[in-house]
Structures are given as C-alpha cells and as structure tokens.
C-alpha cells in the first residue's frame, strides 16, 4: 500500500516541528537582522533628513548673513569711496593752496631778487655811467669849461633872480643879504670871481661879502649859499636826470614782466 497512516501522522508532526524550528532558528533571526538593519537605515535616513534640514537652515542663515555682509560691504565701500573722494578733494585743495602759496612766495622772492638785481644793476650802471661821466668831465674840465660854467651860472642867476632860489628845507622869505657863500669844485680864478660877483651884486645890491669854498666831491659845478637858501648848478643835476632815465629804461621790462605774470595767474 502506498499510504501509511502512522507515517502520515508522523509527517504532520514532523512538519509542524520543522515549522517551529525554522521559525525559531531561521526566519526569526534573519527577519530580525533585516528589520534591525532597515530600522537603522531608516533612522540614518531620518537623521540625515534632520541634519539636511538643519544644514539647509544653517545654509539659509549663513546665506542671509553673507548677503548682509555683502550689503554692508557695498555700503562701506560706498562710504569709503565718498570719504576718499572728499579727502582727495581736501588734499588737492590744500596742495593747490600750498602750491599757490609757494608759487606766490617764489614769485615774490623772484621778484624781490629781480628787484634787488635790477636795483643793484641800476646802481652799478649808474655808478659806472657816473664814474665814466665824472671821469670824462674831470678830464675835460678846464678854463674854458669853467668859464662856460660861470657864464651859465651867472645867466641862470640873472634870469631867475633871488626869488627863484630854492630853499633846501623850506620856502622862506627873502632875508637881507649879508654874506653869500659860493662853493665850487675847483678854486675859481679871479677873473671868474669878478664876473660872478658883478652878477651877484647886481642882483643883491646890499651884499656885504662873498666867500669862496671848494668841494672836490661836486662834479663840475657851482653852489651859491645864502643862509639857508642856495642856488645850484652842477653836473650832478644832469647826472641825476640821466640816472632817472636809466632807471626808467631798466624798470620798464620789469613792469611788463609783472603785468604778464598777473595775466598768467588769472588764466
């Protein structure tokens, strides 16, 4: 017979025991391991999600901070640019002022130097011209020149009269003539003294005495002293006129250069 009841019952029992054993030693441990691992993976995923969320929050926070920093940086840079521009303008203005001041100082110094040079030049030129003239006149002076000087002095005295005399200090009233003092470069010869006295006495009839003096410092000329009044005729006068003319010739280019400098400053 192919069928055995004892074997059938035994196999049922065997199978139920096998189910229990496999459940106990195979399925349960394996499923437990799988569940534990899946739980751990799920926990890791959950933790990762939480961490990702935290990371996103942190990232957003830092993004906001970064944006704030960028904004503050831009504002600060703008402020710094404005401050730098203001500082630059201030320094430029100060430097410009200093440069102008220094330029003015240098110009003044240059002008002073030029003036001093011009003055020195004029002085030296005048001295040179005067020395040359003086020497020339001294070399040329003689009886004829002195005679001519006396004649010219007498002529001037006759033309102008005593009222034309100029007081070196003040125009005073004509005082009574007592003594007249004649100063010349050289001692006047007698003939010339006579000529001169005749003219003087014709102008001042009450004249008591005429005194003669020499002054080598004078250049070819005569001075008539009457108290505080005097009448001069010297080459010094001509030389002074010549000196003034030379001054005007030298100072003219300087004035022109000053005017040119002023027009440059305005531009």
């Amino acid at each position: 017979m192919l069928f055995d009841w004892f074997t059938l019952l035994a196999q049922i029992v065997n199978f139920l025991i096998l189910v229990f054993l496999l459940k106990r030693f195979l399925f349960k441990p394996v499923l437990k391991a799988i569940d534990e691992r899946e739980r751990k993976i799920a926990s890791s995923i959950k933790d990762a999600a939480v961490k990702m969320q935290d990371a996103n929050k942190t990232r957003d926070l830092y993004q906001e901070k970064l944006e704030d920093l960028e904004r503050q940086k831009a504002e600060r840079m703008q402020e710094l640019a404005e401050q730098v521009e203001q500082e630059r303008e201030k320094k430029l203005a100060r430097i410009k002022s200093e440069v102008e001041h220094e330029s003015e100082r240098l110009r003044n110094a240059l002008q002073a130097e030029a003036d001093e040079f011009a003055q020195g030049f004029r002085r030296q030129l005048g001295h040179a011209v005067m020395d040359a003239l003086e020497k020339t006149l001294q070399d040329l002076s003689g009886q004829s020149l002195e005679q001519r000087m006396i004649e010219r002095f007498a002529g001037k005295l006759a033309e102008e009269g005593p009222l034309a005399w100029q007081a070196p200090e003040s125009q005073g009233a004509v005082k009574p003539i007592e003594t007249v003092r004649i100063v010349s470069t050289w001692a006047l010869p007698l003939q010339q003294q006579i000529t001169l006295e005749s003219v003087i006495r014709s102008q001042w009839p009450g004249l008591e005495a005429i005194e003669y003096e020499t002054d080598p410092a004078k250049i070819c000329g005569l001075s008539l002293h009457w108290g505080s009044l005097q009448l001069n005729w010297h080459l010094d006068d001509y030389l002074a006129s010549l000196h003034d003319c030379l001054d005007s010739l030298v100072t003219l280019p300087e004035a022109q250069s000053k005017e040119q400098g002023a027009s440059d400053d305005k531009t």
Partner: peptide, 18 residues
C-alpha cells in the same frame, strides 16, 4: 529536519545586524 535546523543555527549564529 536536522540538516535544515542545524544549518539554520550555524548560519544564523554569527548573523550581523550591522
């Protein structure tokens, strides 16, 4: 049954959860 049970015990004895 012995082979299956013994094999299961041996196989799951050192099973690792992590």
């Amino acid at each position: 049954m012995a082979a299956l049970t013994g094999g299961s015990i041996l196989a799951t004895r050192k099973i690792r959860k992590n």
